[in-house]
Design a protein around this nucleic acid. Structure first.
Lengths: 233, 233
DNA sequence: TATTCGATGTGGTCTGACCACATCAAGTAG
DNA sequence: CTACTTGATGTGGTCAGACCACATCGAATA
């Protein structure tokens, strides 16, 4: 058992025991090292792992934002892992897209109609429409698009699925942005995407989960197919 | 930009450029530190993150297993992240189980009948049956059960879904083991589970994906419900 | 030829130091 | 009394250098 794993185990036990909650803070690195009778080096390596897992955030200085505080950003960890393994060619992009279709189709089919996430989704659609005549380009549209799809996923009320959706989107964000720049007629594509968004949200609000799932699958696969990615299947 | 992130970026670029492949090795920590003009501390922190992500494995000594070599164990990273966030109470176990049902149902419905993974699954079923009269207890059965479900998931041919399935299983492994110990009549439960496994595999081999998906969902939800977990929905 | 044993190179750990930064309290000028 | 300055304090970030445990290889030896 390496020393930093010992530290990791101690911290994880604090979580399990409820001694460390969301928003709480770890002891200072030097104090924790002395308490566990290990070097600060080992403490730091453990904290670095927790940070990569989206469990803590390290902040210098003093006061509110200082120290190592407990957060909850599961998508960060999953996203980094997916991106790294995609970089090693172990995860084909097609598999990532296919998985996203699977999760998001399920999410919209299970979306709760009264969910506040759906209200946020509607608001995002309005903002996309409003920005079409301004100077907004594909980059701003994509940012709103990401949030729209995440809001849709959150409406299903499953935290794990939401986190996975966010991480998948994260892992292929650069890929999607690149594809967007290659599109021949952005205005036409944007208009079509916005119309499809409306149709999806309408189906969800109407309680027709099956239709929403079909629409969402066609929406995602259509984008990647138009942009040049080989169809997942 | 913190120093270890710089190192991380350099290594990730090596992946993207194809200069670092699966099975390859990173430069020695001291050499890499000198090359990038950073301290060995920062190099080590970057490597520790990659190790937590399941991208590299560090080995001491000399020779074949020594040094920091590139591996591909995405399930390790996803599993650790899920387990940690479950420990912080941010991921309800019910959500994890529900997600597993979703992914595995999809996987069996898309399983390729001629997949070697299905042959492995059949072999695992035989081994479960063979061990029922020996001294094997729930622990050994569960180990085979895990591999059976993973083989099923792999038959769909989506690496991302396979990795997520493995990590989900990993995150709730301790939970499942605890539930198993509480069961009143293990022999009866074991017999039922094995029969359900057969039915699932038969449906997949018959090409009836829809039936297999239904059976697999009932199989998983049934186990957790019997063991005392509130039904996911 | 077979065995022993040191040289070498790897990651693992530790110590002690210094830096950048953010806050807070004491002191000071108005 | 107020407003500003300034130093003390505590945080994570980084660094250099040392030593350890381990695995392998090769030269010296029985």
């Amino acid at each position: 058992m390496r020393t930093h794993e010992l530290v990791l185990g101690w911290i994880e036990k604090q979580f399990s025991d409820g001694a460390l909650m969301l928003g709480g803070r770890l002891p200072a690195e030097r104090a924790l090292a002395e308490q566990l009778e290990v070097s600060r080096t080992s403490v730091r390596e453990a904290i670095r792992i927790l940070e990569a897992m989206g469990v803590v955030r390290a902040g210098v200085g003093s006061g509110k934002d200082a120290g190592t505080v407990v957060i909850a950003d599961p998508a960060a960890a999953l996203g980094s892992a997916l991106r790294l393994h995609a970089a090693t060619r172990h995860f084909p992009v097609a598999d990532i897209v296919e998985t996203r279709v699977l999760l998001e189709s399920w999410a919209v089919s299970r979306a709760q109609v009264d969910s506040p996430a759906l209200a946020e989704a509607a608001d995002l659609l309005d903002r996309m429409d409003g920005g079409i005549d301004s100077t907004e380009g594909p980059e701003d549209f994509l940012a709103l698009d990401v949030r729209f799809h995440l809001a849709l996923a959150e409406a299903a009320g499953n935290t794990v699925v939401s986190a996975m959706m966010a991480s998948l989107r994260d892992a292929i964000e650069g890929y999607a942005a690149e594809l967007t720049r290659k599109l021949p007629d952005w205005n036409a594509t944007s208009a079509r995407l916005r119309a499809e968004h409306r149709a999806i949200l309408d189906a969800v609000n109407a309680g027709d989960g099956a239709a929403a799932a079909t629409l969402v699958a066609a929406h995602i696969e259509g984008f990647y197919r138009e942009a040049g990615l080989a169809a997942p299947h």
